[in-house]
C-alpha cells in the first residue's frame, strides 16, 4: 500500500474529483428542497431550482415595471464599478507608498510602525465615520474598500521590497543606478507578481467591505439587493445572487492570474500553477 501522499490522480480523474463537491452540494440541496416542499409547498427556505430560475429570469431578463431597468444587471454594474474603482485606488496607493517605504531606510523608520498600527484599525468600525464625513453616496463605499484593502496591500508591498536580495541592490548601484532608477527598474518589476497575488488574496475582503457598505446604506448593488429581499425571505433571489457574486469573484481572481502571467512572464516560467 502506497503512502497517501504518493497517490497522485491522473488528469481525467482529477477533473472528475474537482467537479464532485460542486455536484454533491447541488444534489444535497435538491433533495433537501424536495423534502421541505413536499411537506409544505409554500416553504420559502429552500426554493426549487425552477423557482430560482423564474426569479433570475424576472430580475435579469424583464424590465422592472417601475424603473424600466434590468435589476440584476444594474446591480452588477453598480457593484463592479465600486469594486474596480476601490481596488484601482488601493493598488495605486500601495505602489506609491509601499515601494518607497519598503526601499528607503529613512521612510521605513518613519512610517513602518505607523503603517503597522494603521492597518490594524478594523475598517467596519470606522464605517460610521466614513458615512458622516463622505455622506451616503458612492464616495463612502469606495473609501471603505480603500481603507480596508490599501493598508494590507501597502504593508505587503513594503515587505516584498525588503525581501529583494541585497545583492541585487548592490549590483544595481555598481551599474550606476540612482535610487529612483532602482525603484523603477529593479524593485517595481520584481514585486509585481507578489502584488498580483496579494490582490487576489484581498478580493474576499474587498467583497466583504462592498457588501457591508451596500447593506447599510445604498440604492443599488448586489449587496443592497440581497439585504432588501431578505425582508421577504426571498431565498429564490438571495441564493442566485450569492452564487453570482462568487462567480464574479472567481473570474476576477482568474483575470488577475492571467494578468500576472502576462505582466511578469519571467516569474511564471516553469512554475506550477
Amino acid at each position: 500500500m502506497k503512502r497517501a501522499i504518493n497517490l497522485v490522480p491522473a488528469r481525467p480523474p482529477a477533473i472528475l474529483l474537482a467537479v464532485l463537491p460542486f455536484a454533491l452540494i447541488l444534489i444535497v440541496y435538491a433533495i433537501g428542497s424536495d423534502i421541505r416542499l413536499g411537506a409544505n409547498p409554500n416553504d420559502k427556505l429552500m426554493p426549487s431550482f425552477s423557482t430560482i430560475g423564474e426569479a433570475v429570469g424576472r430580475l435579469a431578463f424583464e424590465e422592472n415595471r417601475r424603473t424600466g431597468e434590468y435589476v440584476f444587471w444594474t446591480d452588477t454594474a453598480i457593484s463592479l464599478q465600486r469594486i474596480v474603482v476601490g481596488l484601482a485606488i488601493s493598488t495605486a496607493l500601495c505602489i506609491l507608498i509601499g515601494i518607497p517605504v519598503g526601499f528607503l531606510p529613512v521612510l521605513r523608520a518613519l512610517f513602518g510602525p505607523f503603517l503597522a498600527a494603521f492597518s490594524l484599525i478594523p475598517p467596519l468600525a470606522v464605517l460610521p465615520i466614513l458615512f458622516i464625513v463622505f455622506g451616503l453616496g458612492e464616495t463612502s463605499k469606495i473609501v471603505l474598500i480603500v481603507f480596508g484593502v490599501a493598508p494590507f496591500l501597502t504593508r505587503d508591498v513594503a515587505l516584498a521590497v525588503a525581501a529583494i536580495p541585497r545583492e541585487q541592490i548592490v549590483k544595481a548601484q555598481t551599474l550606476g543606478a540612482s535610487t529612483w532608477q532602482m525603484m523603477v527598474h529593479v524593485v517595481f518589476p520584481q514585486i509585481l507578481p507578489r502584488l498580483f497575488d496579494s490582490l487576489r488574496l484581498s478580493l474576499g475582503a474587498t467583497w466583504l467591505f462592498l457588501i457591508a457598505s451596500e447593506a447599510i446604506a445604498s440604492e443599488g448593488g448586489l449587496g443592497y439587493r440581497i439585504f432588501l429581499v431578505r425582508r421577504y425571505l426571498s431565498m429564490d433571489v438571495i441564493l442566485p445572487y450569492v452564487a453570482w457574486i462568487t462567480l464574479l469573484a472567481f473570474l476576477m481572481d482568474y483575470a488577475l492570474t492571467l494578468a500576472s502571467r502576462g505582466a511578469a512572464r519571467w516569474y511564471h516560467l516553469g512554475r506550477a500553477q
Binding site: 536580495p165 549590483k171 529593479v186 520584481q190
Partner: peptide, 20 residues
C-alpha cells in the same frame, strides 16, 4: 563610500536581474 560603476561585482548568487 557607496558602490559605484568603477568597481563591478559578481556574487555567487542573485547577481543578475531575474525579470530581465
Amino acid at each position: 563610500p557607496e558602490p559605484q560603476p568603477d568597481r563591478g561585482v559578481v556574487f555567487q548568487r542573485y547577481s543578475v536581474f531575474p525579470h530581465k
